[in-house]
């Protein structure tokens, strides 16, 4: 245990663990090309590219995708503003209730999603708010704040307060300081947080089932297919595309925050 080389047992255990996390995802990639469309038969009887064009010409998939992207974009924008404000307040000074504020931000993600979901739904019922695009956004923005907040707080902590004082001493007002000193310092952290918030919203299904009504986001479309499989090949293709699309923001966020002490995405 005190040597510099890992024992064989540890290597095998670590490798097997990583394989366990990745093989199921790889399987999705193979199934997207199978010729079988009635069952989940393994091994695939043949390989084809046909289902990609079938999926491409499906209006319901496009509508669900478009709704998901719009919801994720607006929710991310709201979360960016709220998360940055919160992080700025919490990291600049110690004030009464500081712990309570960070708890409030983390709560929507710490409690099971189903609780957030039915709370919102029963509140919409009580207040007679009909389901709409905005009810979905309301839920998503709420749990996206924490991702932006975590990234921004980590960066604010590393940004020296003397920079801000120096800027003020040199005659800049608060707004100029924000624009020319604070913003460039936290920009990559915000970008990383925003990407992760987008990924989180794009993938969310538990809260969305309660706030969407009859609307279908892409995860809801997938959920229907999971419960009652009707078009397996199309689902296979959509699943593969979703995996590829979510990898991009994760890789992006990783490269943006690499080399800092807290790397983005640790607190999903």
């Amino acid at each position: 245990m005190h040597s510099d080389r890992a024992s064989l047992g540890l290597k095998i255990a670590a490798g097997a663990g990583l394989a366990f996390m990745h093989l199921p995802l790889l399987l999705i990639f193979i199934y997207a090309f199978t010729t079988e469309d009635k069952s989940y038969q393994w091994p695939p009887p043949g390989l084809t590219l046909k289902w990609f064009s079938v999926t491409w010409s499906r209006p319901d998939v496009w509508e669900a995708l478009s709704l998901s992207v719009r919801v994720a974009a607006i929710s991310t924008a709201i979360a960016l503003v709220l998360g940055t404000l919160c992080a700025a307040a919490v990291s600049r000074t110690k004030f009464f209730g500081r712990e309570a504020v960070s708890l409030m931000v983390i709560l929507p993600i710490a409690l099971p999603g189903i609780i957030t979901g039915i709370s919102l739904r029963s509140a919409f019922n009580l207040a007679d708010i009909p389901f709409s695009f905005w009810t979905i956004v309301l839920g998503h923005a709420t749990f996206c704040v924490v991702v932006v907040y975590n990234n921004a707080v980590a960066r604010f902590r590393r940004t020296s307060g003397s920079l801000i004082e120096a800027s003020m001493d040199l005659g800049a007002d608060s707004f100029q300081t924000f624009r020319h000193v604070i913003l460039p310092n936290i920009a990559t952290a915000l970008l990383a947080g925003g990407m992760l918030a987008f990924a989180l919203s794009f993938d969310e299904v538990i809260v969305t089932t309660f706030t969407a009504g009859q609307q279908q986001t892409l995860p809801i479309w997938m959920l229907e297919e999971l419960v009652r499989p009707r078009q397996r090949p199309v689902t296979n293709v959509v699943a593969m595309v979703v995996v590829l699309v979510t990898f991009l923001p994760i890789l992006g966020a990783y490269y943006l925050t690499r080399g800092t002490d807290t790397v983005a995405g640790q607190g999903k």
Binding site: M21, H22, L25, I28, L196, A199, D203, V205, P219, M222, L223, L226, A239, V242, V243, T246, F247, P249, I250, G265, K268
Partner: peptide, 8 residues
């Protein structure tokens, strides 16, 4: 895997 789609 942490960030891949839950449903997928």
């Amino acid at each position: 895997p942490l960030w891949s789609s839950y449903l997928v």
